[in-house]
Amino acid sequence: MSKANAEAVGTVSAKATSGIRSKRSGMTDAKEHVMKFIFTLCGIVAVACVIMITVYMIISGAPAIGKIGIIEFLFGDTWYAKEEQFGILPLILTSIFGTCGAIVIGVPIGLMTAVFLSELAPKPLKNIVKPAVELLAAIPSVIYGLLGSMLIKPVIYALEEMIFANDPTHQFTGGANLFSAILVLAIMILPTIINISENSLSAVPPEYREASTGLGATKIQTIFKVTIPAAKSGIASGVVLGVGRAIGEAMAIMLVAGNSANMPGLFNSVKFLTTGVVAEFAYSSGLHRQALFGIGLVLFVFIMIINFILNGILKSNKKTAKSEKK
């Protein structure tokens, strides 16, 4: 509707300008052209930024990968900067495991909260939960890190001591391990998951629910068998956004991940792709610094893949929405 209107305005304005052009002074015409040029430039800035970021990430990341060897860099299992051993397999795996863990914990909780907000909550309760979610989204990531190191680490350490009490081979991490990092990440992706899931649940047409309850389904049955399946592509895009947020997060998990490049294990001190870069950037130089940019490039490739997946989901959403309208 609004698009049609905008197009109508476009044609109207085109006709109007062509009709009046003769009466208008050359100055105004020049001004119009200049402004149009400026706005077009502004529009292209985003494109230029993405191109520049891509080019610069490749320029600064590729040399290290070339020198170390792409196989050794990606699949080498030792990261030891002092001896110039730059294998980032443990970092890649940690990032993947950490993200998966955060999704496994965060998505169910987030989805249930979204269901509560869009389907079940009475207004007064909604007025409490909704601002809480908004606040959760607004809290800076360093604060998550600080709280994680003060609140989650001790709990996980106690758990670790309990589990590994009779295991002399286990290296105690003091709670700074993959498990703590997963918990922090799970909390951090909650607002993303909740907001997007809630929006897509609310967008499900009420007729669907009415048909379901009309057939005798209970409210909960309707939610889980009709509403959630109907909103699944929206929820999927929320999950993908959550993945992107979790894999790119650095500051929140700096203080809780432990920072040694071990293979991922729930109670191992680990290094993520992101924390590796932040922890070592300041004192790195030469090949080490280049290798960190190599890590950045790998992370960038991950993010671009996630972006394309997200774009695909959003496009198919639009298509189904259009075909439903027809």
Binding site: I53, Y56, S60, I247, G248, V278, L292, G296, L299
Partner: peptide
């Protein structure tokens, strides 16, 4: 795409 890029990549860039 820009909104999906994590801040650490912006930092490096």
């Amino acid at each position: 795409t820009l909104s999906g890029i994590p801040s650490i990549i912006y930092g490096l860039f």
